[in-house]
């Protein structure tokens, strides 16, 4: 199969991606392909560039070189190198759903309206349609009974579940999770991971940056290890966690309570 063809089939296709902040190279010639329905976990120590990689996918960070396609469509710049107009960029962006470490709900809107806001005002869905979609998603994340509450009254875990529903409401081609449980109290981590696990079982395409090794092992199809902006290892979770190829990954896993086989 030609390269162009694989890009069209992939939910996310990243080629030769490089990015520097000032003179620090954060990403170096990263290549990553995420197939539809696949769950890819990005692991690495802090400063390895994993959040930057994720944030490049929806152009919250602008890469210096390389290309990213979402469901076959180039994001950020046109194929001929012209920068993409803001409106067009927004449209491609909306093909991705992003869940942030800090939830970033909109505090002036209640739970239901957080979820319907973008479908109505970005996608132009009717209020009824958006609300139906939102209610189904709130049901999925177990937040229906909180639909009239405002974010300030929710726990971190509840906020994150609403944020997941909000991202799903855009019916994205791929869900991006940026350390979704890192800001949570340990006892609240489980409820968020359970929701994400359900999504993977339902076949959602997801790219996730996480420090939850047991979880990564349980839900991923592909694990990617990033070190100083380079992907130094990629494998299926069994291989990655049991027989890592590099000393660096072995050491990393030793320091991270390597999960016992599921």
């Amino acid at each position: 199969m030609s390269e162009a063809n694989t890009s069209e089939m992939a939910a996310v296709s990243i080629r030769h991606l490089s990015k520097s902040f000032d003179d620090v190279e954060v990403l170096r010639d990263v290549e990553l392909e995420v197939k539809t329905g696949e769950v890819v976990t990005i692991i690495g120590s802090s400063g390895s560039g994993k959040s930057t990689l994720l944030r490049c996918i929806n152009w919250l960070e602008k890469p210096d070189r390389g290309s990213i396609h979402i469901a076959g469509q180039r994001i950020g710049v046109h194929e001929d190198g012209r920068p993409m107009p803001v409106r067009e960029l927004a449209k491609v962006r909306a093909k991705t759903g992003m869940v942030f470490q800090g939830f970033n709900l909109w505090p002036h809107l209640n739970v239901l309206h957080n979820v319907t806001e973008a479908p109505i005002h970005v996608q132009g869905a009717s209020k009824r349609e958006a609300e139906e979609r939102a209610m189904a998603l709130l049901e999925k994340v177990g937040m229906v009974d909180k639909r009239d509450s405002y974010p300030n009254t929710l726990s971190g875990g509840q906020k994150q579940r609403v944020a997941i529903a909000r991202a799903l409401a855009m019916q994205p081609e791929v869900m991006l999770f940026d350390e979704p449980t890192s800001a949570l109290d340990p006892e609240l981590v489980g409820e968020v991971l359970a929701v994400i696990k359900d999504l993977s079982a339902e076949g959602y395409t997801m790219v996730m940056v996480t420090h939850e090794m047991a979880f990564a092992r349980a839900v991923s199809d592909q694990v990617v290890f990033l070190e100083k902006g380079l992907i130094i290892e990629r494998a299926d979770p069994e291989t990655f966690f049991t027989t890592p190829k590099t000393d660096r990954v072995r050491k990393f896993l030793e320091n991270h309570d390597t999960p016992s086989p599921a």
């Binding site: 919250l60 992003m98 909109w106 806001e117 005002h121 996608q123």
Partner: peptide, 15 residues
Amino acid sequence: GQIEAAKAHGFTKGK
């Protein structure tokens, strides 16, 4: 973070 969330959800400046 709220601005980023809005951008990620496809919002443009005016909206």
